[in-house]
Design a protein around this nucleic acid. Sequence first.
DNA 1: CTATAACACTTGACAGGACAACTATTGATA
DNA 2: TATCAATAGTTGTCCTGTCAAGTGTTATAG
Lengths: 153, 153
Amino acid sequence: MHSRRQDAVVSILRTANYLGRFYSPVFDQHGITSQQYNVLRILRGAGLGGIPTLDIAERMIEQAPGITRLLDRLERKKLVRRERPSENRRQVLCYITKPGLDLLRELDTPVKNQDNQALHRLDESEIEELIRLLELARGEQPSTKHAPAASYQ
Amino acid sequence: MHSRRQDAVVSILRTANYLGRFYSPVFDQHGITSQQYNVLRILRGAGLGGIPTLDIAERMIEQAPGITRLLDRLERKKLVRRERPSENRRQVLCYITKPGLDLLRELDTPVKNQDNQALHRLDESEIEELIRLLELARGEQPSTKHAPAASYQ
DNA sequence: CTATAACACTTGACAGGACAACTATTGATA
DNA sequence: TATCAATAGTTGTCCTGTCAAGTGTTATAG
């Protein structure tokens, strides 16, 4: 009836929830959400060349419609700029603005603080083991060392 | 700059996301969502006495407003019944209906199947270790054996 | 016994994720 | 070159989650 495997599933979901709440005060204080922060980080990473809308969606593991509207909100806050280049009028290139970069810089330290405090009960080897088990859980090949993610999600 | 602790956080979030997508087809096929399923399970667990709205919210680790509206939708589908008892007209007791119980019974097998397939790459000792590490991650005292959760979340 | 606090929600407004359907471009094919 | 398919987004709708503010009900204190 009741399996440990199911307990593990529940535990993963609860922990994700817990972590969301752990980080959210940092973003709240600056008037953005964690998802908006992630998009801004992706845009900062993309640099001056900008990045098409759907490429952002891909890096976020999210569906396109959400990204369009999330960008709408960031644009309203002047943190992001979008333009449809005349060479290829199908896609929409997205750029982070100066105020966007400023906001990210303000957030760098507090976010890093949260990163360091998160999971503080786990030591280094436990962190590695957790990463390995979660990769297995997602059906991925466990890797000894990971390429850096675009952002914290 | 970039820490393994942060990788672990990202990994937890991604895995939760992955699991959500893993289970959702089962619920989709029966016209409910995973959250609605969770509430129905809680109501089934509560039995004939019913359970107040906020008690459901508590077990779901969710805010009250979401539960009120979720119950509205379940009531529209006739899967749930609510009443304000005359002894204490402040609270609203929620009950699962016959159709609600029938739906849960239909879902029992497919959900159990998903439970068994989820995390199939992990063996028993890895499941135990994962549970332990996640409890630590949430800052809880690791427990050798857990009380069964009300539902999969 | 009446004002006030505490309780148990409910409502409104907004961000986010998901799906389906639609629009506008561009590329490919006949 | 006219047509059709593929690409890249956008719009509409729905469910969920959160916060703030409001309603009705019961308990408490003066």
